[in-house]
């Protein structure tokens, strides 16, 4: 079963005082994949900005833009219409030996590397190692490890910041979707399973009414390698389905930050985010 979704993603900054210029990059429009057909995207920026769009190293559509006039507020609105098909929820069940193939390891080296933000820390590493030893196939280890993370860390909105590291989340026992994903990435990579961060949107309601706009979320989940990339949403402990929309993938959050940039003339700013999703068909 597939669905057609419309996503309106509003975000931006309120600066404390006027800023004289800013340079930004927005990763707010869905990427095209086999299961996800992008019908239309539009990005509106206020104040008027010069912009340049391209596909980055990780395959994510990016719009780089600059504003040269003094402004106190930046608004970015991305509107996309996407056909979402059934996503792969089960891989081919490859063996540990398949994972150790040097060619695969070299190819996936970036999704095996443990960056500072996803480093799971000693305790979770030991848990992961233990799970891997007991599991016949990598996919079995994945299930165990993710369950252990969810046993320990509770999903608490607003409990962390974007720069919070995985170890700190493990200690605090609370985090948001991004933190659960970071922990998962670090733990799975520590046992040699290539894993990547997915940034996107999700409908909070699994059974939405057609034509009725609902408040969605900017969301994150992960994909692990099981002969193909298989999705896993640790926040909801499900496989992402036709209510998930992918924007981009990367090693961690910082490869797919929805809106980032620099500005000159003020010391601080507040970020705001709002996502509205509608099932069209």
């Amino acid at each position: 079963m597939g669905r057609q979704l419309r996503i309106v993603h509003r975000t931006g900054y309120r600066y404390h005082g006027l800023i004289s210029a800013s340079h930004n990059e927005a990763r707010m429009t869905p990427r095209a994949t086999r299961e996800q057909y992008v019908l239309a995207t539009r990005l509106e920026i206020t104040p008027v900005a010069w912009s340049h769009s391209f596909i980055d190293y990780w395959g994510t559509p990016v719009t780089a833009f600059e504003i040269a006039e003094p402004h106190g507020r930046l608004d970015v609105v991305a509107t996309s219409t996407v056909d979402v098909g059934d996503r792969l929820s089960v891989g081919s069940g490859i063996s540990w030996d398949d994972l150790r193939d040097p060619r695969l390891c070299d190819q996936q080296v970036e999704y095996l590397g443990i960056t500072e933000h996803v480093d799971p820390g000693g305790e979770l590493r030991r848990i992961a190692q233990d799970a891997a030893k007991k599991a016949n196939r990598p996919v079995d280890a994945v299930q165990t490890i993710i369950r252990r993370i969810l046993d320990r860390v509770e999903y608490v909105p607003g409990s962390t910041e974007v720069s919070t590291r995985a170890t700190a989340v493990w200690e605090a026992r609370a985090g948001v979707c991004q933190d659960l994903v970071h922990l998962g990435l670090g733990a799975l990579r520590s046992v040699g399973i290539p894993t990547r961060y997915v940034s996107g949107y999700v409908m909070p309601n699994a059974d939405p009414v057609v034509g009725q706009p609902t408040t969605g979320e900017s969301h994150a989940w992960l994909q692990f390698w099981d002969g193909a990339w298989v999705g896993l949403d640790p926040t909801n402990n499900t496989a992402p389905g036709d209510t998930h929309v992918e924007v981009g993938v990367g090693r961690d959050y910082f490869d797919v930050t929805p809106l980032k940039g620099v500005y000159s003339g003020s010391q601080s700013s507040d970020l705001f985010v709002e996502v509205e999703m509608t099932v069209l068909a």
Binding site: D56, Y57, W58, D106, Q107, V109
Partner: peptide, 15 residues
């Protein structure tokens, strides 16, 4: 040459 040699170099700028 292994991909690893390149992608682990601090001078490899993905941008």
């Amino acid at each position: 040459i292994p991909r690893k040699v390149i992608v682990t170099s601090p001078h490899y700028h993905r941008v």
